[in-house]
């Protein structure tokens, strides 16, 4: 069974367009339908390794949908249908034969609204590692994850208190620490700062830059300045005339913000800044 699976995955007839070593995830011809609604159409781009990739665009353009396709979260929506190829470590993880649970153990996620478990701070971080069969010292793991999420100093004396007792910004960093405990190599962030105050937002942004030294980060943001501040690469989505989400252009963030190739990108960027 598993040998057969590997074979079908590896002999996929789609050409691998960008096989360079520094590409972590390559997305090819991605289409997402919700029932009869064609929400995302024909999206193709690469996510570079250990860098921050920002997905931007007007609301409803499908950027979150694309993000949630990467770790198969759309599997949880019965009406959703995701087509196309998402190549990660040489495997098309959008293949139905691939277990989404294993995908998510390697590709972590941070959500728009902080959603810590109604458990202690310690258990919030430890749980993911526990269910994934972590064998090492749990205390050390919890501490190192909380340190890497830049929240250790604030919570080290109250690890047994509920994660819900923290402020919104702290909760979000706890959720990042929780994602790190699985030792993922990719972290998806869905507007991680949109529910937070400006100071907490800055902290999260600093954290993203710091984490990008070790992890591949894909972040959806509606905040243009945030994309400019934190990302190395930007992918711009918009709606076509059939109200389907399409990719307009993708490139290095610096290029795109100073010299957009597409008029729509320029309109969007300048409109938001103006």
């Amino acid at each position: 069974m598993s040998a057969l699976t590997v074979k079908t995955v590896l002999t996929s007839d789609r050409p691998v367009l960008d096989a360079s070593a520094d590409v972590q995830i390559s997305i090819r011809d991605l289409d997402v339908h919700y029932g009869a609604n064609h929400a995302v159409r024909d999206v193709t781009f690469d996510v570079p390794r250990q860098a921050v990739t920002a997905l931007i665009g007007p609301s409803g353009c499908g950027k979150s949908t694309v993000l949630r396709s990467i770790n198969r979260m759309n599997d949880l929506i019965p009406s959703a249908r995701v087509e196309g190829e998402i190549r990660y470590h040489g495997v098309n993880i959008n293949d139905p034969a691939i277990d989404p649970v294993i995908v998510r153990r390697n590709i972590g996620m941070v959500f728009q609204k902080p959603n810590p478990f109604p458990k202690s701070i310690y258990d919030n971080v430890a749980w993911g590692a526990k269910i994934n069969g972590h064998k090492g010292n749990m205390d050390e793991l919890v501490e190192s994850c909380l340190r890497r999420a830049a929240i250790w100093e604030e919570v080290k004396d109250k690890l047994k208190e509920s994660g819900l007792s923290l402020s919104g910004g702290q909760q979000q960093r706890l959720c990042i620490a929780r994602a790190l405990a699985n030792d993922p190599d990719v972290i998806l962030m869905d507007e991680p700062a949109s529910a937070l105050d400006p100071i907490s937002t800055l902290k999260i942004e600093d954290l993203m830059r710091e984490l990008a030294r070790n992890y591949t980060i894909v972040v959806v943001t509606h905040n243009m300045q945030q994309a400019a501040r934190v990302s190395d690469r930007t992918v711009f989505f918009s709606l076509n005339d059939q109200r389907q989400g399409v990719l307009i252009e993708a490139g290095a963030t610096a290029d795109m913000f100073t010299n957009p190739r597409d008029q729509r990108t320029e309109d969007y960027i300048t409109g938001r800044f103006g």
Binding site: S2, V9, H89, V91, I98, D99, I102, V103, R105
Partner: peptide
């Protein structure tokens, strides 16, 4: 985990 390990994990049936 190395890349190969992750790839193997992804294609295995858990």
């Amino acid at each position: 985990r190395s890349d190969e390990e992750i790839a193997r994990a992804l294609t295995s049936t858990s």
